[in-house]
């Protein structure tokens, strides 16, 4: 169940148009829309952004995987909503809570689109292109690569300890917290052992010897890339402009009514 959250963040080959884009374009797309999502704080533009992401998801046939992740974070967004509604900033709490929740969902959605349609190789290429050193990019890639392995290890550890009579469901809060030790210690030890092993294997094969790396695939911007880049910029600019200029700005900055205390 918990592993399902990641389903919308794992590459899923479908071959639709978004897959064919240059990783740099996809990265810019992600960055532009993440910034936009953080820039707006009212319900209307955030809803537009969310719907826009849904259009991309559906037209790329990844709705199933995307849906799993969104459903998995639904509970979390409910928590965000109620927290903000109860303890949120002064002023219009309903409006604030709704926009924060929408913002969270929209961000999740855009990240999900990016990870669903980008292979790990493209991802590392994209990270390199925004200036992150290869060592860090590589580290990040390895971490991503090992999430499913880690999940499987953890399941086996739980099974092994349950076979020795560990009952996770029993006991009060403190007792239950103590029962995490037999689960977490093997996991941490196992992963440290594994990372040392990987580091040694990498060094043995000369990782980091050459400063300049070449890549198997060279990326060139195609026509579709340029179209999408153009579209992204136009859409983003028009969203920002319409929030500044009347008569649209009134709709864009619409606030939900205050809840009667």
């Amino acid at each position: 169940m918990s592993i399902r959250v990641f389903e919308g963040f794992k590459f899923k080959p479908k071959g639709t148009y978004f897959y064919k884009l240059d990783p740099r374009v996809k990265m810019s797309f992600l960055i532009v829309y993440s910034i936009l999502t953080l820039y707006f704080s009212t319900v209307v533009p955030l809803s537009i952004l969310f719907l826009f992401s849904v259009v991309i998801v559906v037209s790329n046939r990844v709705a199933k995987e995307w849906g799993r992740t969104l459903r998995a974070v639904a509970l979390l967004s409910l928590v965000i909503f109620s927290f903000n509604l109860l303890f949120g900033a002064k002023g219009n709490k309903l409006n604030y809570a709704s926009s924060m929740t929408l913002r969270f969902l929209t961000l999740t959605s855009f990240f999900s689109i990016f990870f669903l349609t980008t292979t790990p190789e493209e991802l590392s290429e994209a990270l390199l292109l925004i200036g992150i050193p290869y060592e860090y990019t590589f580290m990040f890639m390895m971490a991503m690569r090992f999430i499913p392995t880690l999940a499987r290890d953890f399941q086996t550890i739980i099974d092994a300890q349950r076979s020795r009579g560990l009952e996770l469901e029993k006991g009060n809060f403190v007792q239950r917290a103590r029962k995490l030790l037999p689960l977490l210690i093997p996991l941490i030890v196992l992963e440290i052992r594994r990372s040392v092993l990987i580091a040694e294997a990498l060094e043995a094969r000369g990782f980091g010897t050459s400063a300049k790396r070449s890549t198997l695939k060279e990326y060139r911007l195609s026509k579709v890339d340029l179209y999408l880049l153009f579209l992204t910029i136009t859409f983003a600019t028009s969203l920002i402009l319409s929030s500044k200029l009347p008569p649209y700005s009134e709709i864009m900055n619409y606030r939900l009514p205050e809840l009667v205390p």
């Binding site: 086996t156 099974d159 076979s163 020795r164 009579g165 030790l181 093997p186 030890v189 196992l190």
Partner: peptide, 22 residues
Amino acid sequence: LSVAELARTVGLVFQNPDHQLF
């Protein structure tokens, strides 16, 4: 039956000891 109930009768030694030593 729960695993804990069955475990008294059935002992299972896993493939990899690193999955349980703590």
